[in-house]
Design a protein around this nucleic acid. Structure first.
Lengths: 248, 248
DNA sequence: CGAAATCTTGAGTATAATCAAAAACGGTGG
DNA sequence: CCACCGTTTTTGATTATACTCAAGATTTCG
């Protein structure tokens, strides 16, 4: 982990601003939050289950994921973490981490101490509410994820996750129209969906044959967005995006 | 819904006190929070997906659940709500409900306005943090639920959920030793575990035959707690209970 | 006591897992 | 620039967990 000091709150501020306009004071408080920036290679853990961290990590760029390893050694990815996300914000109030966070692609990660976060929350109640709200949206995504894995077949599950990824990427300006970069391997999708990599491969081929997606290397294109949404029973309400880019 | 005014914050205060000692001020602020109490029959919705509630509900007694209905008409229960839980606390910061909450057994439910909650959070930062923390634990339970449904087979899944229920019930004084009341039908377990009721039935019979559980009507007894934990790969860390009753 | 809900049992089926191996891809160094 | 290595993707054959459908037994509750 190569580290340096450099403030770069753009993706976070962009997210918060999509909910309500920040005052100059609030914006400045955010921009002067001390943050230690690190560059992390792909397939590296940023934090691990069992840790008792004193800071939280803000994903500045790249793809990461939140996951658990079962006693049987199987891995479940419970969420993807994109630019602007703070996937372990909960550690601010829960001392022990019940999940690990690992990179999928190379990432720039900013670490913010809990001390600094607590201070800004006390001084700026609206920012405190905004941070709280972010963790509530995380929870909403977990709920939808339970439903996806519990009630839908593999084909629908995959369609649903792809819809979620595209909408979330669009919300932070990382997708244009129905195209985005997507450096997620079939094995990682397998861990996210609770199926085997072999089955992911078969499902993806079927989706390609059905004209739902074009997925080649790191590039995803969705030629028929409405059909993909329908197949995945995707309704973006649970993402609680204020702007209506979600529905598009 | 037969309603009346009667303050009864015991289960909530008990939960908060298990984390840190409340000051007299804090305790009084909680006890004087206006709450409208209602008695709700079993199998009734308390709030529904799509609602924009102006208050949150505190389960005072009985069993409820948080669930989603997919476009295909299937139901996924994403969490059970027990006494002391506020399963829709998130509506304080997320305007639209992305889940429904329904009773499993008859429940006493207390409704607290968001206005009152916001006020107490501003006046008592430690209570604000405590409420935030409660929603973070909900999220931790969702994460474990994803993992349970995604990575474990039906038998293990059932073992895991039973472990979680017993530990959580014990934390609020509703289980002694390894016995508790459990008014959850096999059909409801099916919706929680993402399997069919028929399969739940077969799994439960196997668990009985294996001497893991005694489940008859509303009464659950766990003769071999260690074995059940092992089968369900249950580690209570994710419940973030401060007291060590969890491990027992 | 009777109706409705819940639980139980059986037989046949399907979605997805497992196992195994080959092909394609991506990055690295000579 | 190409050869090489590890990773990722792809394909095939077999198996298993869990589903579906259907009907009967039991429990619960009015």
């Amino acid at each position: 982990m190569h580290t340096s000091f450099r403030p770069d709150y753009n993706p976070l501020i962009r997210k918060l601003e999509s909910v309500f306009a920040l005052t100059d004071d609030e914006r400045q408080a955010l921009e002067t939050l001390p943050m230690q920036v690190a560059v992390v290679k792909d397939n590296q853990d940023i934090v691990r289950e069992g840790d008792r961290p004193t800071r939280s990590c803000l994903i500045l760029s790249g793809f990461a994921c939140t996951y658990k390893i079962t006693a049987g050694g199987r891995r479940q990815i419970v969420a993807f973490a994109l630019a602007g996300d703070i996937p372990d914000l909960q550690s601010l109030h829960l001392t022990v981490l019940d999940i690990s966070i690992g990179t999928i692609s190379p990432c720039r990660v900013g670490f913010i101490t809990h001390e600094a976060l607590r201070e800004i929350c006390l001084g700026y109640p609206r920012l405190a509410a905004a941070f709280w709200r972010e963790t509530l949206i995380d929870a909403a995504i977990f709920r939808e994820w339970v439903t996806n894995v519990g009630q839908r077949e593999a084909y629908q599950r995959m369609a649903h996750v792809l819809c979620e990824l595209l909408v979330r990427l669009r919300a932070v300006g990382l997708a244009e129209d129905h195209i985005c970069e997507l450096p997620i391997t079939q094995g990682e999708f397998a861990d996210a969906l609770g199926v085997t990599p072999v089955h992911v491969n078969r499902v993806l081929q079927q989706m390609r044959a059905d004209g739902l997606i074009e997925l080649k290397g790191d590039r995803l294109n969705i030629p028929d967005w409405d059909k993909l949404k329908r197949m995945g029973e995707f309704d973006p309400t649970y993402l609680h995006l204020e702007s209506d880019q979600a529905a598009a």
